[in-house]
């Protein structure tokens, strides 16, 4: 029997404390052959297990251009993530995947890219950012706008510094009003406001955004105002999932299975769906 529900075993190689409630796990398959044969595309997700506690859905946060490990970043929210926070380096987890569609990398080539992320929404965006940066000469200007509620809630702080120091990349980091510290040198404001301030050009540009539902909702009209076409605004949905295989019926939006037909959708595609995300 081919058991589509049975995960492969992975070992935790490294744990990075991103924020008080967000961690990044660096994982490797226990079976070295799998580590070599496992292929995925930026934007795809996986199901991560803690045996006895359950499974959780997160995007793969590392870039497919760096195949020696897989990373996932997760926020403490429920039963499984709470069990995950108690794990240590060397512990074993389960992993099923990769599932879902991916960011339109081919369509993005030769274009300017604006990455917009809020909170842990930076995880899937970080995956495609590194994918693009590792193929830097195939893309034009790159802008990264990322925000968090407070300075302490910013994820991938070191990598943000890396992006800032790279030439040809405009990196803007913001925190929500009230979330700044006295020595905060970045922007203060909600992500949509910062996007408005940065006012990216829509000319030959694709916008990739991910973040809380409210951030997404308020950023769409701003991008449209700047002349972005619906098909050039790309986002990723986070409907609740269980199977990841187009079976359990949980992630459905209308006739779309987010786990199979998504999680990446253009704003144009989103507009054809019922508002159930």
């Amino acid at each position: 029997m081919d058991n589509i529900y049975k995960p492969e075993l992975v070992e935790i190689k490294e744990i990075i404390d991103e924020t008080p409630d967000i961690k990044t796990f660096r994982l490797q398959f226990k079976n070295p052959e799998l580590q070599n044969s496992f292929k995925f595309k930026a934007g795809q997700f996986a199901e991560y297990s803690v045996f006895g506690e359950g499974e959780c859905t997160f995007c793969i946060a590392s870039s497919p251009t760096r195949p020696e490990y897989l990373e996932c970043s997760f926020k403490l929210a429920g039963k499984t993530t709470s069990a995950m926070t108690k794990l240590n380096v060397g512990d074993t987890m389960g992993l099923r995947g990769p599932y879902g569609n991916s960011f339109p990398l081919e369509q993005m080539k030769g274009k300017n890219i604006v990455f917009i992320a809020g909170g842990i929404g930076l995880a899937p965006v970080r995956c495609i950012i590194w994918n693009v940066l590792d193929l830097r000469d195939q893309f034009k200007d790159i802008t990264i706008i990322c925000g968090a509620r407070t300075v302490a809630d910013l994820v991938y702080k070191n990598e943000i510094e890396d992006w800032k120091s790279m030439s040809g990349i405009k990196t803007v980091v913001s925190v929500d009003p009230g979330g700044e510290t006295t020595d905060w040198k970045g922007e203060i404001g909600f992500v949509p406001t910062i996007v408005e301030k940065v006012s990216p050009s829509a000319n030959n540009t694709i916008a990739i955004l991910c973040g809380p539902p409210l951030m997404i909702r308020y950023t769409f009209p701003i991008l449209e105002k700047f002349g972005f076409k619906e098909e050039n605004i790309i986002t990723t949905l986070e409907n609740r999932m269980k199977c990841g295989l187009g079976k359990c019926g949980r992630c459905n939006i209308g006739s779309v299975y987010v786990c199979k037909d998504g999680p990446i959708f253009s704003y144009k595609e989103l507009k054809t769906l019922p508002q159930e995300y």
Binding site: F51, G52, G54, E55, K242, C243, C248, G249, R250
Partner: peptide, 15 residues
Amino acid sequence: HCFDIVDEQNGSCAG
């Protein structure tokens, strides 16, 4: 046909 997926422990190291 919708379903849920849950883990159930049976003792401390099996389930």
